[in-house]
Design a protein around this nucleic acid. Structure first.
Lengths: 370, 370
DNA sequence: CTGTTAGCGCATTCAG
DNA sequence: CTGAATGCGCTAACAG
């Protein structure tokens, strides 16, 4: 016996706000059933007669009723979105344009059929330090979460995410948390094979240009490098390891500094800047001619391209390939087709370079703030 | 008198799921106050002593409590995210890579300080037809909503969004809804000035290559074109208006078809494909040499670049400029610094072309599905 | 300044 | 097959 009339609630009058929202109660009253029955229809659950079901669906469609996603999540403990967040302060890792496009495309391929919401948390991009990148999980907005960017060794929020039980995936590992769900490349192996390659060719003073200082990917690079040196009974000379940051204008200078010492005869370029031009400039300024008085191994994220044309070899880090498989597994986990955590490690591969196309310096999505 | 112990709830044991979530009740009990007081602390509202406030904050931090965003929204009628959605089936308007990057950057600039969630609804990207692109609003997930893409003249969901009262912005107008909140360019004027320019130069058979058939931007193009013809007492010849779609491989052929009729001496290129190469190819195949036996006006979204080097003039559509102002106003509306609806209309500008740089064909983010 | 109470909109017991 | 009652976690009235 609805005292409410369908037409009356669709406020035809054109004053802006009135527009009372329909609730499941209103629908139930309108149809003359209980909210339980309506709920079953909404959730496509059994226990409602076919005729009744259709009548209810009809009304729902007619009045344009949509359940409140917050109330639903609250009650059913089901969250709303697939989340994307960045576990590092943003100035540490400005994401490249091509990466964002690639990521968006991947998420589209994996999740558009399900009609998901993809939710980017801008909190890590905010000015303040130490903002909570994991709030999308703790606020129970995210039903699953993808962590993009380097992890700090002392990260505490990751274990909260882990314990929360929601499907999640990082694109890197964390020493302190081997059980962490991740899809990554073995950076230790990458650094090891880079160094080893050069050592085997007789070099004894091998410099390394690296990034992500103070973050796990930086630590892993160093570890592989040290391991290779140890096998050759060589000491680690801190002066040979140079850290660079993204957006730093001084990349060429840092390379120049590093190569002033003419006992250095080899360079591992694993800075992830992919800025071949600056590195070349630094080498030239230090009087180095690749292939003559310096030998270079550089890292790349594309199998068939290199950062520096003049290098002797490049190491391909199949980061995107690992991430792609990881995100598919994340979807499986999200939809109950498997359990977590995800554990994907791709191995890097070393190729002796023979004039591949040189990649362009990637554009950063937004430059780090001053 | 907390019967619960802080340490006990942080399950130190390493079995995966237990991890009971803290609620506001738990915090209140732990501190020995009511939930109301805790709530005030959480929401930075007055009415709590400074000492008490700090004690509560301390506990909250210590146990890592975060409010449930759904419950919060449900009670306070405050939604969680800034939403982005596409009001057209996705095959109608594959968004370009550069547009997505631009949009993402804009949203970052406008909303990252506030630490918002930016939520993309993938529903419009799903396979099924007529999916509800507005559900982010009706499900009350979005606190504000940006509609990206062309609107259909018979769109019904937009008025639902409008009446819902949440801040929203479309990047185009809708005839049926002049009160709609929008930031757009006057496409009618663009088509009018394009046609008028050519008519004034003596052309009487002016062809038009357009897109968005059946959508508002397509309608507006036609309207401006017809208006100009009418002022010259010229009839509209349907054969001179050709629609193209994005991702269509046949763009060159369609241009060729259009220009087979040698009474046609002018072309308005407002297809938004920005695919100069294909258009040039089509003209050549039809035996046309721009400046000799055909005169072209093309549309562009960058002030200093044109689609076709050989054109006589180009019309600049300041779409991004309008959208930028619109999104800033959307933020103002969202944070109560102004009211809606937003009403921004930028005027296009016609430039006689003198060898600007020609723009590249944009890459589509994902190609339309077959 | 703080506590008590109610209810946001929904899904899920448990009865009938 | 359907209805009544309960509470998810939180905020906002209103008392004290």
């Amino acid at each position: 016996m609805g005292s409410t009339n369908v037409e009356a609630m669709n406020n035809s009058n054109n004053n802006i706000p009135p527009e009372r929202k329909w609730t499941i109660y209103d629908i139930a009253r309108e149809v003359g059933v209980s909210t339980n029955t309506v709920s079953k229809v909404l959730n496509r659950k059994p226990g409602v007669g076919a005729a009744m079901r259709r009548r209810i669906e009809e009304i729902i469609r007619h009045v344009g009723y949509t359940p409140h996603i917050g109330a639903r999540g609250l009650r059913a403990k089901r969250n709303a979105c697939i989340g994307v967040t960045v576990p590092a302060p943003f100035d540490v890792v400005p994401v490249s344009q091509s990466f964002l496009l690639w990521l968006f495309t991947l998420l589209y391929e994996v999740f558009s059929d399900k009609g998901e919401y993809i939710c980017f948390d801008l909190n890590p991009f905010a000015a303040g330090k130490d903002v909570d990148y994991s709030r999308g999980v703790s606020e129970r907005l995210f039903k699953a979460c993808l962590l993009v960017g380097p992890l700090a060794p002392n990260d505490v929020r990751l274990s909260q995410i882990h314990r929360s039980g929601i499907p999640y995936l990082t694109l890197g590992r964390l020493d302190a948390m081997p059980e962490c769900s991740s899809a990554t490349v073995d950076y230790v192996a990458g650094a090891y094979m880079s160094a080893r390659y050069l050592l085997e060719r007789g070099h004894r003073r091998v410099a390394m240009l690296k990034a992500f200082q103070g973050f796990q990917p930086g630590i892993e690079r160093r570890r592989g490098y040290e391991r290779a040196l140890a096998e050759f009974d060589l000491p680690v000379d801190e002066a040979l390891i140079k850290n660079v940051t993204f957006g730093g204008r001084d990349l060429a200078h840092r390379v120049e500094d590093l190569l002033q010492d003419h006992s250095v005869t080899a360079l591992i370029e694993c800075s992830a800047t992919e800025d071949g031009a600056s590195i070349r400039e630094g080498m030239l300024r230090a009087g180095r001619r690749p292939g003559e008085n310096i030998e270079v191994v550089s890292w790349t994220y594309q199998q068939d391209a290199s950062v520096l044309r003049e290098e002797s070899a490049h190491v391909w880090l199949p980061v995107r390939e690992a991430a792609t498989e990881g995100v598919w597994q994340l979807a499986d986990w999200t939809y109950g087709r498997r359990n977590g955590p995800i554990n994907i490690v791709y191995q890097p591969e070393l190729y002796e370079t023979c004039g591949e196309k040189e990649i362009e310096k990637p554009k950063r999505l937004f430059e780090p703030r001053e």
